[in-house]
């Protein structure tokens, strides 16, 4: 006690450090489970972040618009051309739709439910991104109230984004697939028997390996989720960038370029 009285400052700092270490240990044991207090804090922060993100997006859109006028002009021309082609495809698709409906009727009669799996989407805005440079966690503005649960898959128009790690009343933390904590079971889109495991490396790339050393995986192959583990089947992950054979592990190792541009992530959908 006498030592504590003589070294008040040091005692206070050491006590603070001890409290933090206890909090850390409890947090490691409990995992990412939140509580009422953290939920209130996070909800308040979500409101502030939304405002800041709105201002950021306005500045970003205007500044980028000014400096990339030529690029945008080219983009408009490309999109116009693409639009014309898509219109043609819609006409063709209308014809195919009738055939598809006939096939669906037939599958119902035969009790074949492969094509029946449908998801409910909850759309959300990305309001803040973890800036630690190591992890790739971001926060969205929808939570339990919108029916979001821990483990739900998150996608955007380009493909798989990640999974919900923690959820509050009106917010949810999402771990992206490029995070080092993220592991995905995948298969090749062209040959669904060829499967593998991929994991993020936080620098925007995903690396992985094929389960079978005789796999015919090649650069440019599109990878989709296999349906094993956290993510539902058929979500696009990305393209194979490089393929190398590791003679030590006797496995074909690959690097993958994610379909999603994580640097410009603003809107996502949570699959239910």
């Amino acid at each position: 006690m006498r030592w504590i009285k003589e070294h008040k400052l040091l005692s206070t700092i050491l006590s603070l450090l001890l409290v933090l270490i206890i909090i850390f240990v409890i947090s490691v044991i409990r995992g990412a489970e939140g509580n009422g207090f953290t939920d209130i804090l996070k909800s308040g922060e979500t409101v502030l972040d939304k405002g800041f993100t709105g201002v950021k997006d306005t500045i970003h859109d205007n500044v980028v618009g000014i400096f990339s006028y030529r690029k945008l002009q080219g983009e408009v021309e490309r999109l116009t051309k693409e639009n014309n082609e898509l219109n043609k495809k819609i006409t063709e698709a209308k014809l195919n739709k009738e055939e598809l409906e006939e096939l669906r009727e037939l599958s119902e009669i035969l009790n074949f439910d492969y094509t029946k799996k449908k998801f409910r989407y909850v759309s959300a805005d990305v309001i803040s991104i973890d800036g630690s440079n190591w992890t790739n966690i971001f926060t969205i503005d929808r939570g339990e109230k919108a029916g979001i649960e821990v483990g739900d898959a998150v996608v955007n128009g380009m493909g798989l984004v990640g999974r919900v790690e923690e959820v509050g009343s009106n917010w949810a933390k999402v771990i992206s697939i490029i995070d080092t904590d993220s592991k995905i079971s995948f298969k090749l889109a062209r040959d669904r028997k060829q499967q593998g495991i991929a994991m993020g490396d936080a620098s925007g790339n995903i690396s992985g390996f094929m389960m079978n050393a005789d796999s015919t995986v090649a650069e440019g192959d599109v990878l989709i989720t296999s349906g094993l583990g956290t993510y539902p089947e058929g979500l696009e992950i990305g393209n194979v960038k490089t393929v190398t054979y590791n003679s030590n592990t006797l496995l074909k190792e690959i690097t993958i370029e994610a379909s999603v541009n994580f640097k410009e992530l603003d809107k996502v959908a949570v699959l239910k």
Binding site: L20, I21, I23, A32, K42, S128, S132, I137, T139, K173
Partner: peptide
């Protein structure tokens, strides 16, 4: 840590140090 992390203390403890 509450807002963006998974484990509490991974940012706070290094800041104290």
């Amino acid at each position: 840590d509450i807002f963006y992390g998974i484990t509490l203390g991974t940012t706070a403890i290094p800041f104290v140090l």
